[in-house]
């Protein structure tokens, strides 16, 4: 029963909240959509922590998403033993980098008075959730080897069943609690998106690559 609530009801609720509230925030409080950069106030520590954090977490997220979307391809990719080793080591390395950089974010916000002045409750909640999640992820990788492969036979079928609106938790029910906590943490962070600065990740300005350098806005003419 508890599993049904945690791994069926909660994920749906989290995604629903994330979508509805993010759209609402975008429509009604668009002004609050921002990366809320604090680089102006402190740059030395941010210069490595922000870069390290974003590249490591984006790579990790990309791996999670790719594996879930193309399990066949992912399985084939890790077919060879060497490639599997490489993936495991890379994954753990990136997770370590991510852990260190969230710790650096937290340290920076605790110790630098200027950055502290612009730190909100939302920032603390988010940083705590991210730290917990990357630590859980790292422990999962460390304690339960070859996650890059068993992920395909546990979490992926579960996620797929959620997407198909035919929720099945059999594949993940027998997993250890540590791994289940990592799953839960993922959806907690999803639910946090609209209430924290995490919205910034969804306004990634890809169109910069092709938009014209000059932007002219006319009031009357439709140019």
């Amino acid at each position: 029963m508890a599993d049904n609530v945690l791994f069926i009801a909660f994920p749906y609720a989290a995604v629903l909240v994330a979508v509805v509230m993010s759209v609402y925030r975008y429509i009604d409080h668009r002004f609050t959509y921002s990366s809320l950069s604090s680089q102006l106030l402190e740059r030395e520590q941010l210069s490595w922590s922000s870069v390290a954090w974003h590249y490591s977490i984006l790579a990790i997220l990309l791996a999670h998403v790719l594996a879930a979307l193309f399990p066949g391809f992912w399985g084939a990719l890790l077919g060879g033993q060497f490639r599997l080793y490489l993936m495991e080591i890379t994954g753990m390395g990136l997770a370590l980098v991510a852990i260190l950089s969230v710790l650096a974010f937290i340290w920076r916000r605790l110790t630098n008075p200027r950055v502290r002045a612009v730190t909100t409750r939302g920032d603390w909640v988010l940083l705590a959730a991210l730290l917990a999640q990357v630590v859980l992820g790292f422990l999962t990788a460390l304690l339960y080897r070859w996650g890059a492969v068993w992920y395909l036979h546990t979490a992926v079928p579960w996620l797929e069943s959620l997407v198909r609106l035919n929720p099945q938790i059999d594949a993940i029910a027998p997993l250890p609690w540590l791994i289940k906590l990592h799953f839960l943490g993922g959806f907690v962070i999803v639910a946090l998106i609209p209430f924290t600065r995490l919205v910034h990740a969804f306004t990634f300005p890809l169109s910069y690559v092709w938009r014209p350098y000059r932007v002219v806005v006319w009031n009357r003419r439709a140019h």
Partner: peptide, 24 residues
């Protein structure tokens, strides 16, 4: 984000506060 624009009528350059995402 393409948040900074020139007004066509008079050329004043403005930052659209709703489009700016603080990428600085």
């Amino acid at each position: 984000s393409g948040a900074i624009y020139k007004r066509g009528e008079d050329g004043i350059v403005l930052v659209n506060q709703d489009k700016c995402r603080g990428w600085r």
